[in-house]
Design a protein around this nucleic acid. Structure first.
Lengths: 344, 344
DNA sequence: GTGAAAGCGCTAACAG
DNA sequence: CTGTTAGCGCTTTCAC
């Protein structure tokens, strides 16, 4: 902390500062001074210098030093913005780990880490451009700025993009149009006459397309317009508030498609508070395979991306890219999953 | 893939194999052969060799090479087993990132990554013992085997343990005894006469203590024994099944403490299916500050660890340890949070 | 067009 | 008890 802020502090710096050799410093840092029988006074002086100079070990150097030449070490990264549905990320992680475990062997190890970036600041992640952090990455939950960055540069290692179309990378995508269409069909077949779609006010590419396709389908099949309700944010509370306002204003609604899980949860509360029954008065459709949808009251019918399939594709692609490098980018579309439950 | 499995493959290996110099190989790997005007034939031969020999770049070496001596790079790790409630981990991550961002400056960068290990296999995580991966770590969701490993060795860098007591490390803990006691008090004050505690069959130290304290409090206050219902696993489905069996057998229950969120969710379904009302027939208490507890139907009263406070303590400790190294281990206990809602 | 050499920061082996 | 030396694998000058 004290003074070494601008000049880099290395074991060498400390050694000179104390008047000992770098190896003595190294020994103390690893708590091996006993077996090396360093003089306690020396140890103390070194410790003091370490603290005073604010020494931070260089991890890359240590790793290189510790490296066992018999094993290949693969560094995999899952890169996601903070504004992410964690549960999807954790599924990706689990799947990556499963496949990595299956391939781990004598001369092969995998390290997998999740790295979060602030939306729009992917370019600032260190080591991305010079390939000094990962052997392969999965990129997801990007915003347009990040996409522009990616599109403008071809990273020289394995990259799979989840949920975006970028011409120079392998991409795995859901089909938001089809999702919206199917959601509309389910509601319309259930004799819904005044469909509503509940979205966050800030639409992502994906949620926008879902809502759009929903409305288009309603228009095509009935000639009427679906009502659009925009929640301020992504939380259940936002969803509840928005739908409450809609219902409170006496506007019609006998069928609802909520484009995210959390909004559906909030919608349930608003509907019940308004004294309406699900699905009798208002049928509700949410998005795909939420782990708790079965325990909503009533259980929630879902149309949305089949995340497990998506994740599987992503991970398969990543490993493929890492072994056969420089293949032509592909786009993989995964059709939606539909789970019918009691709410529609 | 093909043959280089046992002998380590480096740029040097490839260079020799093709009959060029390491620098040529390096240039091709970084896609810089254009500006260096390598012969296209050479480039192709190098590419072929790279593929054939299954070359994997050594990330540590690249990092060391790319290292800018003007900035200190801090590697922070959040180490958690797979059997983890992701949402807690993601809170830790957010908080760490927040504090790291605040400290990031000219000569200072932080990288934060989540690393998952298989329960009981923490010792197998590479680079833990020789300090070649992290400058500081937060360890959580360990099982006894992992704890034994940690207790037996003092890692020579900043370590904060979340949710376990280990004599040689800084630990931050909730107070499961107090949690169980408060849960019991809430139910008993609500005139509950036949309390039940719902737990997973496989108890962690923490869930066991919560259940134990709950039963002890019931015993002390009423002289009766609380019934214990064990669910096969941790999911809502497990919880629903277990409680359904209990209620179906005609056994009494007018107050329930579920020691995890998911079990509470399942319990709701079982209770409603049995035609009972919450809280009129059966009052329900869940654990701390679940983000969706407000949207349970009815909203769920919670007694549990106050995760935000815990996370704050953990992260504060970590940064403290990194700047003032080798301080005496401390134990920090964070009292439970109580949020009263409609379910009890 | 291509190769040789230097050195990033660290630690283990070997000499004193 | 302590210092010197070598080298982990990589990329970037610089020289040919």
């Amino acid at each position: 902390m004290a003074r070494g802020e601008k000049r880099p502090v290395t074991v060498h710096t400390i050694a000179k500062h104390v008047g000992v050799s770098p190896s003595a410093v190294s020994t103390v840092l690893a708590n091996r001074h006993e077996e090396r029988r360093l003089a306690p006074a020396t140890v103390e002086k070194i410790r003091a210098a370490v603290r005073e100079l604010g020494y931070v070990p260089n991890i890359a150097a240590r790793r290189l030093r510790a490296h066992d030449p018999e094993v290949h070490h693969h560094e995999l990264g899952i890169l996601t913005s903070f504004e992410a549905p964690v549960f999807l990320v954790s599924r990706v992680l689990r799947q990556v780990q499963r496949l990595a475990d299956a391939r781990t062997g004598a001369g092969r190890r995998y390290s997998i880490s999740i790295e979060m970036f602030h939306a729009g600041r992917l370019r600032a992640m260190p080591g991305l451009l010079n390939a000094s952090r990962f052997n392969g990455v999965i990129v997801t939950n990007t915003v347009p700025e990040d996409d522009a960055f990616l599109a403008g540069t071809t990273l020289p290692y394995a990259v799979v993009v989840l949920g975006r179309r970028l011409p120079n990378y392998c991409c795995v995508l859901d089909t938001p149009g089809e999702i919206g269409r199917k959601a509309a069909e389910i509601l319309l077949k259930g004799d819904c006459r005044s469909p509503v779609v509940l979205t966050p006010a800030l639409l992502t590419q994906s949620t926008a397309e879902r809502a759009e396709a929903f409305c288009a389908t309603v228009r095509a099949e009935t000639g009427r317009e679906a009502a659009r309700v925009a929640a301020l944010g992504f939380t259940p509370a936002n969803g509840a508030e928005a739908l409450r306002a809609h219902l409170g204003a006496g506007r019609r609604c006998d069928g609802l498609y909520a484009v995210t899980d959390s909004l559906a949860l909030g919608a349930y509360q608003a509907i019940k508070d308004a004294g309406r029954r699900i699905p009798k008065d208002i049928a509700v459709v949410g998005v795909g395979d939420h782990e708790h949808a079965d325990f909503f009251d009533p259980p929630l019918t879902c149309v949305g991306p089949s995340n497990d399939t998506i994740v599987e594709q992503v991970v398969t692609q990543l490993f493929y890219l890492m072994t056969h490098r420089r293949v032509k980018p592909v786009e993989i579309f995964v059709p939606p999953s539909v789970v019918r439950r009691a709410s529609a």
